[in-house]
Design a binder for these strands. Structure first.
Lengths: 244, 244
DNA sequence: CATGGACGTTACGAGACGTAACACTTATGA
DNA sequence: TCATAAGTGTTACGTCTCGTAACGTCCATG
């Protein structure tokens, strides 16, 4: 007999949650095997040993399931980035940066379909809810990088970016960045936020091309070195590390 | 009465080519309206005033149509990059670089669905032919950037990259790059080819995130400035321009 | 004018989504 | 203890799309 309805779940709720989890895991399995589009209710049900209409007791339609998968993927990415940082001393900023970038890459390469689910074109006729959990979860994944940049600035080790900040003569732009800043944990300065974005896009560019196979003609060793170079370049441009 | 079967096409062939073109254009229209996945033979046929099975006289199946669209998109991107360069003096290397990058971005923003078609996860259950025209067309689009880097090196204006080339101690990696080099027009040195790839991925990262809406919370002016900054940073890192 | 090929049509089967109606299980409460 | 209600799963069904098959129709060629 459950006593607390908020923290303790009834048996029914636990079973239901387990079923939801099984559905999502089965969908992920199918996605990894056959691509993002091959998430068929029919197949999920068959793998689970039930019939397709039963799934509609848990997800209103295909979009709702995909939305859940996207949200979970953001969580997974955020967890991967967080875990990578924990294995590096907090004051080793260069190491933390490399760890974050490597974790981003490893996560993407280890689960390309989920990467595509998050950062690619959504999926056949799937439109992500504009203000749903998706957008917020994306911010969360990015916040790890933001935290690193903030720490670097706090420790006084953030050098001037090699390229002058954009839009110095246009206060409106800075204002816009400042708005976003408030949403961020500790009120990053616009310049720092810009550094963060450019770093992210540099990192993302390499990983994205690699994941989608546009570097397939290079061998793994070469790719590793190229990635390291790209990360070092990004850190240098951002002022996260000092030129040698 | 057609005389030359290689250059002159019969009336039938011309009509057929026009129909093929109309099918592709209609598919693109649908794709731009409703997303990459909404390319239904039924809808294409309805818009064209014919019935769906008629389309199978021109494309064996959905994949074949999509492959054609991908190939055309690469052509379009390559043409956009080529056109951008023509409007800039050949010896204005910085200008050419900015022009290429801007064209890349403009092309992507002007037709996000085609960008996704090329660089995203292919499409519902669509697997690009491994050695089909797709891969080669991708190289062609990239060759414009390669030509620029080559020209810069020829004119002796390619400074040393700000970040040491990757894998200096691993000849195998350089060998791999050298292999690819032979495929390229003029035998780029491995270092130069690396610069090209890193530049491309930096450019692609920003554009990709922007196209897929991950920068939606920034206004257009801010984005323009950020893009310029990103491009300048890439050029600097690559050694395409000298530090001030 | 007869023939063959290209083009388009209707008819059809397979498969996936999503709904409706029904049956079984489980928790709750008089 | 037993009746009721909610939750879960099933079968049956309608709709849509893909892709094939079989059948006309038009036009170019001899």
């Amino acid at each position: 007999m459950p006593t607390d309805s908020t923290t303790v779940h009834s048996r029914r709720e636990r079973v239901r949650a387990a079923t939801v989890e099984e559905i999502k895991q089965t969908a992920l399995t199918l996605m990894r095997e056959s691509g993002t589009a091959e998430v068929r209710f029919t197949d999920i049900a068959r793998l689970m040993g039930i019939t397709a209409p039963a799934l509609y007791r848990y997800f209103a339609d295909r979009d709702e399931l995909l939305t859940a998968l996207v949200a979970d993927s953001f969580d997974s990415l955020a967890a991967a980035l967080a875990g990578a940082q924990e294995s590096v001393p907090a004051d080793d900023l260069g190491g933390r940066f490399l760890a974050i970038c490597s974790a981003y890459r490893s996560w993407a390469l280890g689960d390309p379909q989920r990467f595509a689910l998050i950062f690619g074109v959504p999926v056949p006729s799937y439109q992500a809810p504009p203000d749903g959990p998706t957008a917020e979860a994306g911010q969360r994944a990015l916040d790890h990088l933001a935290a690193l940049v903030t720490d670097t600035a706090r420790l006084g080790r953030l050098g001037p970016p090699l390229v002058a900040p954009a839009a110095p003569a246009v206060p409106a732009a800075a204002g816009t960045l400042a708005e976003k800043t408030e949403h961020c944990a500790d009120g990053l300065a616009p310049e720092i936020y810009q550094v963060l974005l450019l770093t992210w896009s540099t990192l993302h560019g390499f990983v994205s091309l690699e994941v989608y196979g546009h570097f397939n003609w290079l061998d793994a060793t070469t790719l590793d070195h190229l990635f390291t170079t790209q990360v070092r370049a990004a850190a240098l441009v951002a002022g996260l590390v000092q030129p040698a």
